[in-house]
Design a protein around this nucleic acid. Structure first.
Lengths: 122, 122
DNA sequence: TTAGTATTTCGTCTTAATACGAAATATTGA
DNA sequence: TCAATATTTCGTATTAAGACGAAATACTAA
């Protein structure tokens, strides 16, 4: 019997293991993945601007419109950037229609800060 | 005379000002842009892995192949990620054919560290 | 000079990001 | 109830990112 790429095999496997096999093996740590996610959230100047804006403003919260006035981009575009930051957890929006008040999510902000601090501090 | 979007105008303008007008107006600061660039460089887990790898290894430098062995991705893909990190300035490659020894670019690393430190420290 | 080696570049494909305007949403105040 | 308002979602388009294998590169050692 020869070995060939066209040989057939039969075996039993759990659904979970099958999913694991089919899914790309994870070769990086959870920390590395988390850091990459925070970095991605901050990988666009508009989003850095927004975080700066929220961090600097008096009451540390503000409306989408306040930021829209400072930026020469469509309001819908800003909205998508806000969505990205929300997805990453860095901000949260308190709905107060027709306004939405955005704030920094302190918990996640601190987590990102710590992760990056440890990463760079060596 | 009426105002219409189809009115014509004639004016003199320097080449520099023309370029400025044609280019998108910059509404974020140089610092914000720089931070976004570093963040983008770190926005993929493979690139975070690479920086960790370089920072942890004994002599603090290593070959592309050393990292390729740890990662289940094509060597050409790793090479593109290394190119991204080089473009951002975070690493530098000392050519020593057929090997290329990669090291962290301390100067840029420290700059990124400081930028992010200031950004998060509030 | 030639073969071997580590790495990169190139061509190609697929998916994700970014941007806009129009339309939808959800509330307040008339 | 209806209009006004701030914001988001949707549809669509364009550009960028990420992945791979094949081929190119540039050097060493035979």
């Amino acid at each position: 019997m020869t070995n060939s790429k066209n040989d057939y095999f039969c075996f039993v496997i759990s659904r979970n293991d099958l999913v694991t096999m089919q899914t790309k093996r994870k070769y990086y740590t959870a920390e590395q993945e988390k850091l990459a996610r925070y970095a991605k959230a901050l990988s666009h100047p508009v989003r850095v601007f927004v975080m700066d804006f929220l961090a600097n403003n008096l009451d540390k919260c503000c409306y989408s419109g306040d930021m829209a006035e400072e930026l020469p981009i469509a309001r819908s575009t800003l909205s998508e950037h806000l969505k990205e930051l929300k997805k990453a957890g860095l901000i949260q929006g308190e709905i107060n229609p027709p306004y939405i008040k955005y704030c920094i999510n302190r918990e996640k902000w601190d987590e990102a800060s710590k992760l990056l601090g440890v990463f760079f501090d060596r």
